[in-house]
């Protein structure tokens, strides 16, 4: 199985590449749409700012790749900023349009909860996922723990109830951790850095692709 990692110049692909390779999949790193479409599934990584990332996707002519991904139901996993880009819009450094594969918008942690108590921003460290449902490719039994590694200052809001798979509780906010709609999945945390839980999530996703469940 071949996993294409979308290389649009945003952040460190090495850890994602290594994590996927450790699980036995072949990795193709590319910025070329046609080449990426030869992969069995795609990963959209990303570290950095939302507007810069969208600009990079446009410059590298990769925005239309996502139309093909949707049309052909090619499995896609967005990680961290890569997940945020799948939403309609973000307020990071102004009003920005996203790829719009998920409904909802990306907002910034305020640093203060409803009772006026301050909390740390970025949301950095290990938080537990609370599952609303399990996608076909992921079974509850497969997960031996639910701690994953988050590091972000922006998060998805107004997410469709049906798209939300799991969330974390931070600063009194429901922070979407996993979203999924059809073949498209987003993970706000870093599965490639999330110890055994991350390994289980990535393994399940890869096996799901093989079985045609994603």
């Amino acid at each position: 199985m071949k996993i294409g990692i979308i290389d649009y110049g945003m952040g460190n692909l090495f850890s994602v590449e290594q994590a996927v390779k450790r699980l036995g999949a072949e990795v193709l790193i590319s910025a070329d749409k046609e080449e990426l479409l030869t992969a069995d599934a795609l990963i959209l990584p990303g570290v950095g700012a939302f507007p810069d990332a969208m600009a990079r996707l446009e410059e590298t002519n990769l925005v239309s790749l996502f139309d093909d991904v949707v049309a052909t139901k090619k499995p896609l996993l967005g990680i961290c900023l890569g997940m945020q880009l799948l939403f309609e819009e973000s307020i990071e450094k102004g009003d920005n349009k996203g790829l719009g594969l998920f409904k909802g918008s990306i907002a910034e942690f305020s640093g203060e909860d409803a009772e006026g108590k301050t909390y740390r921003v970025p949301h950095m460290g290990w938080n537990n996922l609370q599952f609303k449902r399990y996608p076909t490719w992921l079974s509850k039994e497969a997960l031996d723990n639910d701690y994953v590694y988050f590091v972000h200052s922006f998060y998805a809001t107004d997410v469709e109830e049906l798209d939300l798979v799991a969330y974390a509780d931070y600063g009194g906010e429901i922070v979407p951790g996993i979203v999924q709609k059809g073949s498209i999945t987003g993970m706000q945390f870093h599965p490639e850095k999330s110890g055994s839980c991350g390994v289980t999530l990535l393994t399940s996703w890869l096996q799901g692709i093989e079985k045609g469940e994603v």
Partner: peptide, 10 residues
């Protein structure tokens, strides 16, 4: 590089 290849924690 070696650590990042072997480890799945930050």
């Amino acid at each position: 590089r070696e650590t990042a290849s072997a480890l799945s924690i930050p």
